[in-house]
Design a protein around this nucleic acid. Structure first.
Lengths: 164, 164
DNA sequence: CTTGACGTTGACGTTCGCGTAAATTAGCCA
DNA sequence: TGGCTAATTTACGCGAACGTCAACGTCAAG
């Protein structure tokens, strides 16, 4: 933030191409251009080509983190804008804080919904199991199948919200 | 389910208009018709007018709960269909059982995602709070505001994903 | 009689978060 | 100069979940 222009920090003056960022963060060029369209990023140019600074990269990180926690791009842009004007502007931080709290509350409600849905599904499963145990015990799932179901993906491929 | 037609239970034979349901659950008529279009509901008719039974109402509850936990309408319809056919063959039950288990697993993953999102948001909040406490403690939210945020709606109005 | 609330059926519009061409341009190498 | 690759642009598409509007019927209250 308080850079000495006589001894420019190589790390801070480094720039990135669109490809580099997509590789680093696992998103598409299209996505980055889209964020730019929506006012979330504003990389410099060399001719036509986009040149991303370290600050742009940081913003991208924030964007992706925001997405992971279920914020819309509009929300993220708002917060990012606040960060910008945050040359001490504390009122902006306060607004961000409110947004975060709202999101937390929403998530907590969602969690409750999920818990009750799980409970409901469990009792439904038990009913079905009892039914099957009587009529066709051969159709009951084996421990093997259960394993396949319970840990289907070790990686982070599931997209935070919205399965399927 | 096993109703005695000679002593009809008033509660179970009650019906609802589209308006009544929309008011009760805080959704629009358009939404209910849309669910019907998508095969999630199939209310009776008196002439052209829709007449919702208690069972329809129960299905609507399930639909809304499903939505809140992030299921698509198609997913919900699948589950609802399974509930229906569960008096049928055992093969169907077995299939339903599998689907339910998958759903449970998916829900549990989603819960984990939500938990980590909440954690992330919490630390972000704490950072902002410390910042504000130093610079502008007057901007920190009061207990009053917190109450408004934490339980903003007693009804089912909150939209699961996406504030704004 | 008029108004207003509620109901119906289409049909088209909208928002989100990009994907997917298609056409063009820039830069680089020989 | 030609040719390749990578980047750019504009533009259309999509799938979900409705909203909105048009155009109309029905019924009770004032």
């Amino acid at each position: 933030m308080t850079a000495d222009y006589r001894r420019p920090d190589i790390r801070l003056s480094r720039t990135f191409t669109i490809r580099q960022l997509t590789r680093e963060f696992g998103c598409t060029p299209r996505a980055l251009r889209f964020y730019e369209d929506k006012g979330l990023l504003a990389p410099a140019r060399q001719g036509l080509n986009r040149v991303y600074s370290y600050r742009d990269r940081a913003r991208l990180q924030l964007i992706l983190r925001g997405k992971r926690v279920g914020l819309s791009l509009a929300d993220i842009r708002d917060i990012l804008d606040l960060y910008d004007k945050d040359d001490g502007g504390a009122a902006q931080s306060a607004k961000a804080l409110r947004k975060f709290r709202e999101r937390i509350a929403a998530f907590e409600r969602q969690r409750e919904d999920i818990d009750s849905a799980i409970a409901e599904l469990r009792t439904a499963c038990e009913r079905l199991e009892r039914q099957l145990a009587e009529s066709r015990p051969d159709l009951l799932p084996k421990a093997e199948d259960y394993d396949r179901i319970v840990r289907p993906s070790v990686d982070g491929r599931h997209e935070a919200i919205g399965l399927k």
